[in-house]
Design a protein around this nucleic acid. Sequence first.
DNA 1: ATCGAATGAATGAATGATCATTCAGTCAAC
DNA 2: GTTGACTGAATGATCATTCATTCATTCGAT
Lengths: 246, 246
Amino acid sequence: MSTAGHVESVVTDPKLIGERRGQIVRAAVKLFSEEGYYTTTIQQIAREAGVSTGLIYQYFGDKDDVLFLSLKLVLETYEHEIPPRLEGIEHPVDRLCMALWAYCTIVDGLREATILAYRSTQSLRADRRALVKEDEARTNRLIEACLHACVAGGYMRKVNEYLLAYQTVMFAHAWALKNWAFRDKYSLAKYVAEGIALLVEPFLTARGRAALDNMKRRTGNFSHEARDALRKPRAAPRSGSAGANK
Amino acid sequence: MSTAGHVESVVTDPKLIGERRGQIVRAAVKLFSEEGYYTTTIQQIAREAGVSTGLIYQYFGDKDDVLFLSLKLVLETYEHEIPPRLEGIEHPVDRLCMALWAYCTIVDGLREATILAYRSTQSLRADRRALVKEDEARTNRLIEACLHACVAGGYMRKVNEYLLAYQTVMFAHAWALKNWAFRDKYSLAKYVAEGIALLVEPFLTARGRAALDNMKRRTGNFSHEARDALRKPRAAPRSGSAGANK
DNA sequence: ATCGAATGAATGAATGATCATTCAGTCAAC
DNA sequence: GTTGACTGAATGATCATTCATTCATTCGAT
């Protein structure tokens, strides 16, 4: 063994190394997404993250653990990025549409990672798998709440909110899972518009339809960033009771 | 090597064990479904199939090839088992509902294998992956055709048939993919009934709705095997297009 | 200030398991 | 006695995981 030749010290900038774990997980998500769990080696992750193989075991129990935190990162992105996108949007129908739009956008940005979630959740140890499912269920409830508000407000007729929420989530996931089939048929915006036609419109009451038409007019059918167009001009409505008025 | 030769004279004698390949693929589907592709070893497959490891390489080029044929078997099951279930059912709305019901039933019987398809399609070599996708697309067109017939017959309003077909397929797949979430909320029959409420009913015209109501009456909401209830009482089994009557 | 533990982050070569794949044979049928 | 299906031990690669070391710190005592 000749330790001599290696003068490659820890050249990392002392200032920049913040989150070793995050650094490693980010590398892992990238590689797992591209190549899959089993075909990605710890050595590759180490190289991608710019650390040594040994260090990974300082921060993670084993490879399974790295996968677990990778999936968690992805699912938490879903869960945490939707609510801010809904902030300030009052009308239940607007909120529902925006939730669908937001979800699809997020999936679009994490297309590979979304596929990763479908591919590898069951290579996790059972206990960790349960935690991942819990994350997924939470995101689901987010959509379900939007649906419920529409029904409660009289904008949507009674539906199976649970299953329709699931279908909505599946619709967003499908953008990643079946992208090879959709890519050259629809832009993301068109896809979302079709999603609304399939998952929202058919269930609206007359009142709901009016709200949707109104929204479409204001946002030009989601062609651009519709978020701001839907926000209340100005207000400080922190505590909102869902009570539909007018 | 090439798996091409289908009608190879591997064993031409019907007396001798004809289906060595089938025997092995069936074992592989079982194990891949239960454990995943990478965690299943050729040795295990051999044991399960009751043959030696070496023999597998007599019938398959490599492990990837075994996966390929396993997935093909599953997808072809979808493709081949739906049409017979529709046979003899004339009314477009009935056919559509039956297609959904049939698809869900098949998925139910292949729950693990369906998950396998989602998990492992991308561990296939690119060229084989394309073939698998082609299989999937074909099944999709089956549903699309049912939808189209409904629209053409004036039973359903104009919809994006392509995407609604996809949603229908995803709905069936979800029964496998998210079974942990649905299992204790719905029976399969209830699930299908909800599927019709979400994916069929909302798009029907008045005429279509009448047809659906009529079907529900005859079949008791799919509670039992509805297939026969929908079949034409009796008719020329094979030939020509009998005029669909009222 | 200076020195020499003591700490612990980080390294990467070595270890040990686990398989995919091969091949020298066996056996049964003709 | 030739053929070819079939066997299963042996081979060789590929990793996950370990661990003896290195290096840069901090810090207490001088």
